[in-house]
């Protein structure tokens, strides 16, 4: 054992020993979780893999808001280096506000859109001013 550790902890191998050790522990724990699940399923008389009754998302989840927020987030990150931080933020924070405040059957609520625009404009320029001008923090 000592020889084995000595060999592994030679300077050229040192960086690999601990990741291998932790990865092995993770693999072992994963197997234990599977075994525990198998035992539980056997006890309860339920199938080990039950795709029919498995719901990753909540039943009736808000598809538009969840997937919309993910797509907007990706587009926002892409747009940040292309546009000025504050302008990219005004556009996307406005879109996030509209998306999150959207009510079924009432897509174009003028009051809500106006509030979204104000929050997006004030929020984006406010954050830009606070962090870039006051705190001197690098922004995209």
């Amino acid at each position: 054992m000592q020889q084995f550790l000595k060999e592994w902890l030679k300077i050229r191998n040192m960086h690999l020993f601990f990741p291998y050790l932790i990865a092995s522990i993770c693999a072992l724990l994963f197997v234990v979780i599977l075994i525990q699940r198998a035992i539980k399923c056997k006890k309860d008389g339920t199938p080990f893999i039950n795709f029919k009754n498995y719901h990753f998302f909540k039943p009736g989840y808000d598809k538009v808001k969840l997937w919309g927020s993910l797509v907007l987030f990706i587009l926002y990150i892409i747009a940040l280096p292309e546009l000025h931080f504050a302008w990219a933020s005004v556009i996307f924070i406005f879109l996030f506000n509209v998306l999150f405040d959207m009510k079924p059957g009432k897509l174009f609520d003028i009051k809500s859109i106006l509030i979204s625009a104000v929050i997006a404009f004030v929020g984006s320029w406010g954050v830009w001013y606070l962090f870039y001008q006051v705190f001197n923090i690098t922004l995209p």
Binding site: I93, F96, G123, I137, P140
Partner: peptide, 21 residues
Amino acid sequence: ARMYPVILLMCIVGAYATRSG
């Protein structure tokens, strides 16, 4: 619904500034 977009803005600033850009 009104809080999260602003929180997102702060998160972006925080992540970007971690290693100064």
